[in-house]
Design a protein around this nucleic acid. Structure first.
Length: 575
DNA sequence: CAGATCGTAA
DNA sequence: TGAACTACGATCTG
């Protein structure tokens, strides 16, 4: 055993990482490249090495030897032999199967494998020869172009990822450029944005499809536009909501020479199809009745798109995968802050949109000053005795809500507000009753789904101007892209454990700050309740990104609030 | 026929 | 595990 190493590598593909260890930070960075975080209690973080995490690493250029060397350098004990075998096997699978165009037969693709045994294995496991595919040599299988997406999806599911080198249709050409700003100064991309665009383009032959992972505030729309600008083709942009549709359209008009006649909105309100069209996922999946067809999927074929951009690709609805499988000859760019999906369709994103091409951890942007430096603090608030009684008597499903609505969270909120007397603060929660009560108690306006868009805009404006310092917001915070940014967020309750939600909420305070570029994220959790478990689950994504939650335990009510005051100011911050 | 309101889906 | 919110389309209104 070698205690100078931070990890325990287990034969079940789990890796335990000791948190307090000197080499923690470095190990975390390595692991995040080829493993995914599954649990993060305080002393050890648990990572899992999955086929998908290895293939994504392979797509970024990791070899099995590199993964092994990395594991070896971090592991306290010898890396289990079985695992070494598994990693060798899995990583080497990426690239063994390639997809190319048959230059002799039109509409025909060829799946090539590096050895005939592998081809035998695949044919056996899939029974593919019974379909419209022919084995044209020991190592080659020919099939129709229409099967391209289906094949990749199926084989990835079976454990055989395909390196797609079959190329793309360029689509209808569309000329435009960045608009010149000021004194003939065209728009400048940040270095990492240039790198992301380059990574998406890949080497000649590869690239052209895949996912760019960037935190909120990292400029995902800019990267989308930059890829469009490189390709000079008609583009379909898919986003999660109508506000974001308008945002894309505005940005395009503002930063490029495209004019409004060339940019179309395809949503519930309008059905324009123009050289650049921005649509919501929802309209694509809309059906008149439960089992009628998806009538708007035809949008994929209404023009000769040269590029399809999937904004927030982690939200891509399952039915859209099917349409995506059919347009594999079109370049595809996925943009997201997290590849984690609650429905486990990560594999389909990998096989149908493409592998991860670029990943920029939040912490690195923070070091460069592109986003604010955030301190995350989890405050565990205990329950008063009568609440505790109610909690224990309640049925399982009500317990969570009782804990979440713990009224003793209020003094903590007030204390935090006092600690940040000059900052814009967002109080974010899940239950309207609770939020109404808090809003009334601290005399701050509440923004919920009930409030009209106009009223919201008014409040957002006053908040931006500093006339209103504190806003209480409901789940609207998860969707409203126009919510102004603050430097302090207090999460008073959250849903069952969505990592996405936590990421979104943190995103609200990430925009760089003028003074010291610092922001604060507090999450209030009732001590010894179910809420603690869900909080752990929610925080996982941020921990994956390298954030650490300082934990404050709040033993009892008001008089302890002062006690924590000094504690917070002192040291409950990140390094 | 633009804008408000309502029910439904996910 | 449940509540809250959004998007869409249909219907209504001046």
């Amino acid at each position: 055993m070698d205690n100078s190493k931070p990890c325990i590598v287990q034969h079940d593909r789990m890796v335990l990482l000791e948190c307090g260890h000197d080499a923690f930070e470095e190990a975390r960075e390595q692991l995040s490249c080829f493993a995914e975080l599954v649990k993060s209690p305080s002393s050890f973080h648990t990572y899992r090495i999955t086929p998908l995490s290895l293939w994504n690493a392979a797509a970024l250029g990791w070899s099995a030897t590199m993964v092994m060397d990395s594991l070896h350098s971090m592991s306290r004990w010898d890396v289990p032999l079985g695992l070494i075998q598994d990693i060798r096997d899995l990583v080497s699978r990426y690239g063994k199967l390639t997809l190319v165009i048959d230059l002799n037969v039109p509409y025909q693709l060829i799946l090539k494998s590096t050895d005939s045994q592998l081809m035998d294995e695949i044919i056996q496991r899939t029974g593919m020869l019974t379909l419209d595919m022919r084995r044209i040599s020991m190592t080659e299988l020919a099939f129709h172009v229409a099967r391209r997406g289906w094949l990749k999806q199926e084989l990835t599911r079976l454990g055989y990822p395909i390196l797609d080198l079959a190329g793309y249709d360029d689509g209808q050409r569309l000329s435009f450029s960045w608009k010149e700003e000021g004194v003939n100064q065209a728009f400048q991309l940040r270095d990492y944005q240039k790198d992301a665009v380059k990574a998406f383009e890949g080497l000649p032959g590869s690239g052209g499809s895949g996912v760019v992972v960037l935190p909120c505030g990292g400029g995902k729309t800019v990267i989308g536009m930059a890829v469009m600008e490189r390709l000079q083709c008609e583009t379909l942009i898919l986003t999660s909501n109508t506000t974001s549709v308008r945002q894309w359209m505005d940005e395009l008009e503002l930063k490029t020479t495209l004019v409004s006649a060339e940019i179309g909105e395809y949503s519930g309100q309008k059905k324009e199809v123009k050289p650049v069209t921005v649509a919501t996922y929802q309209i694509l999946t809309h059906r008149r009745t439960k089992d009628s067809e998806f009538e708007h999927m035809k949008l994929f074929n209404e023009r000769q798109w040269g590029l399809i951009i999937y904004d927030e690709v982690h939200l891509l609805p399952a039915p859209v995968f099917r349409a995506t499988a059919e347009i594999q000859a079109t370049r595809r760019l996925g943009l997201t802050a997290t590849l984690v999906r609650e429905d486990g369709c990560e594999q389909d994103v990998f096989s149908l949109v493409g592998p991860k091409r670029y990943d920029m951890p939040w912490r690195q942007l923070e070091l460069k000053g592109w986003i604010a430096k955030v301190d995350c603090v989890e405050i565990r608030v205990s329950m008063a005795n009568d609440m505790l009684d109610r909690y224990h008597r309640a049925e399982g499903k009500h317990k969570f809500r009782i804990a979440a609505e713990n009224p003793d969270k209020l003094p903590v909120i007030i204390s935090i507000l006092q600690q940040h007397p000059h900052s814009g603060v967002l109080v974010i929660g899940q239950y309207l009753d609770q939020l109404e009560w808090i809003a009334a108690s601290i005399k701050a306006p509440l923004i919920s789904g009930k409030m009209s868009q106009q009223e919201r805009m008014g409040l957002y404006d006053s908040f931006r101007r500093g006339e209103v310092r504190v806003l209480v917001v409901s789940k609207v915070a998860n969707f409203a892209v126009d919510l102004p940014d603050a430097s302090v967020a207090i999460e008073v309750s959250g849903s069952f454990g969505s990592r996405q939600e936590e990421a979104q909420r943190l995103g609200r305070i990430l925009r760089p700050k003028s003074l010291d570029n610092r922001a604060y994220f507090y999450t209030l959790v009732t001590k010894d309740s179910k809420e603690e478990d869900f909080a752990i689950q929610r925080q996982m994504f941020l921990i994956e990104q390298g954030y650490e939650y300082a934990i404050q335990i709040q033993p009892d009510t008001v008089e302890r609030v002062e006690a924590t005051d000094s504690y917070t100011e002192g040291g409950a911050v990140l390094q």
